[in-house]
Amino acid sequence: MSAVMERRETPAAAPVKSRRRWLTRKTAPYVFISPFFILFAVFGLFPLLFTIYLSFHYWDPSTGLGGMKWVGFENFTFVLTDDWFHKSLYNTFWIALVSGVPQHLAAIPLAFFLHTRLSRWRNAVVGLYFLPFITSTVAISLVFTSLFSRDYGLINVLLTQMGQWEVAGLRPLGWVFPTENIDWNDPGYTKWVISFVVWWRYVGWNTVLYLSALQTIPKDLYEAASIDGASRRQQFWHITVPLLRPMMFLAITLSIIGNLQLFEEPFILTGGLGPGGTSIGGPDQAGKTAAMHMYATAYIESDFGTASAVAWLLFLIIAMMTWANNKAFKEKS
């Protein structure tokens, strides 16, 4: 406040005011929000519309803007009948499901436990679980690549030691744990590894979402239930779960949107661009997601038209899955 007072008294304040006469109470809000809209128009909307245009053309960017050729729906029919696109979609859904479902199955009980059992340590534990969410995906995926490497990776060492553990000449854990090193790069394992890392990264995020929903449930509901003799488990199933439904809907929607566009984790975990920078997705392209397919089409094959078609098809698929999830939740309630 004192700054304002001083300003009013200095003679220099008058010219400042007159210079900004165009900034009235009516125009000011539009001026103040304009940076967002200008930036969005230039870097968001215009390019997006341009990719729609591009998806109906054949274009190799090295030929310049003049090299575009109108091809109608050819890019779309090509992508829709392309086995590699089908495979990348299959991989995407596989990973989305195998990493997504356990995320929620772990996050809901964890949030319930944190909410009911911990008070002083709650924030610290939430912080630990949330940490993976804020760290560099690339850095941590590289570390996971090391932990999962075949001959010396820590995860194989741990697993095989459990598997080779002997009691009286028998290996009691041998049927659960491997006795030999697993080649995690094998196409059969790639998606499991990616799913694990994605699960690891987003469990904390989902836990925080559910925890915030739990904190809005009034305490007297539980008190009333326990007076009526409901056990903790009954309280969980009959009070907590129904009241969590709106949050489940939101969190699952976010998981669908996020998991169907996975790029960074699978990209790094499958070795990036591979030797020579020409392959993507690891052996047999077992870890190639749809977003990676789009990237490869544009930046390895230099076919921006087809890549734009892949991008919009994937966008449509995500929109459809979100819509289906919306429908499913509405019908059940």
Binding site: P47, L48, Q261, A298, A311
Partner: peptide, 27 residues
């Protein structure tokens, strides 16, 4: 148009980042 404009701002959060990859290169 305050509410409409604010809704537009919030709806841009829903645009998936991968959709912006090719356009970013172009622009």
């Amino acid at each position: 148009f305050k509410n409409l404009l604010f809704m537009i701002v919030m709806s841009t959060l829903l645009i998936p980042p991968f959709l912006g990859m090719i356009p970013t290169t172009l622009i």
